[in-house]
Simulated scan of single mutants.
Amino acid sequence: MIKSKVVSFEMNSQDPDKAAAFYSNVFGWTIGEPKWGYSEAVTNGGDGINGGIVHGPSDYPHGIRLHLEVDSIDNALKEAVQNGAQIVREKMEFEEFYLAYIVDPVGVGIGLIENK
């Protein structure tokens, strides 16, 4: 079993500017400037689970994915696949972390994060 914790979320939208305005105006989220097409979303003044809003890719055009922090993406991907998940995006490298996307056996999208 892989240990994990929810560390962020990713909202996918075909109109991320409209989504950002909605969550900012209605719920008071602070929305950052886009970086890699991803705008950071700070909830409850930073006293909550933060995430981001992004233009949804063709394989996940809209919806919310939780991001789970794991010690090893490689081990988590192996265990997830053995238990019925599908890999949507293989391990990708960013400045401070690695990221991969899976879909669980019932169709829920999940991001896996391994900090460097």
Rank of each mutant, 00 (worst) to 15 (best):
E79C: 00
P105D: 02
Q86Y: 09
L66Y: 02
N44S: 08
W36R: 14
S4T: 10
A20G: 04
G84Y: 12
E95R: 00
G111R: 03
E10F: 08
V7I: 14
K3I: 02
I113S: 03
E95C: 02
E69Q: 15
G111D: 12
E114K: 10
G32W: 04
L99F: 03
G46M: 09
I31T: 00
G32K: 00
I110Q: 04
V6M: 12
Y23L: 06
A19N: 08
Y101V: 07
D17W: 01
V108T: 14
I102D: 03
R89H: 11
P16A: 10
M1Y: 08
I64L: 06
E95T: 11
A19G: 07
A21S: 14
L68V: 05
E93I: 02
H55T: 05
I102S: 03
H55K: 14
M1S: 14
L112V: 13
N83G: 01
F94A: 09
H67E: 13
V26A: 12
M11W: 13
E40P: 07
P16I: 01
S4V: 00
N83L: 13
S4R: 15
K91C: 03
N12Y: 12
V26R: 00
P16S: 08
K18P: 06
V88H: 06
P57D: 12
D47P: 07
S72T: 02
E90I: 01
P105W: 04
I2Q: 11
H62I: 13
P34N: 08
T43W: 12
A19L: 11
P61H: 02
V6Q: 09
G107D: 02
Q86C: 10
L99V: 15
E95D: 08
K91W: 00
L112M: 06
Y60E: 08
I53T: 02
D47G: 14
K91Q: 01
G46E: 12
F97E: 04
V42Y: 07
Y23T: 08
G51P: 05
G111H: 05
E33S: 09
D47T: 11
S4A: 13
K5A: 06
P57F: 01
A85N: 09
R89M: 13
E33D: 12
L112T: 06
G52L: 04
P61L: 02
V54D: 03
F22K: 01
N115F: 11
S58I: 06
Y60Q: 08
V54N: 09
Q86D: 15
H62G: 04
D15S: 09
E114L: 06
V88A: 12
N25A: 14
E33I: 13
L68Y: 06
G45W: 04
Y98G: 11
P61C: 05
N50C: 08
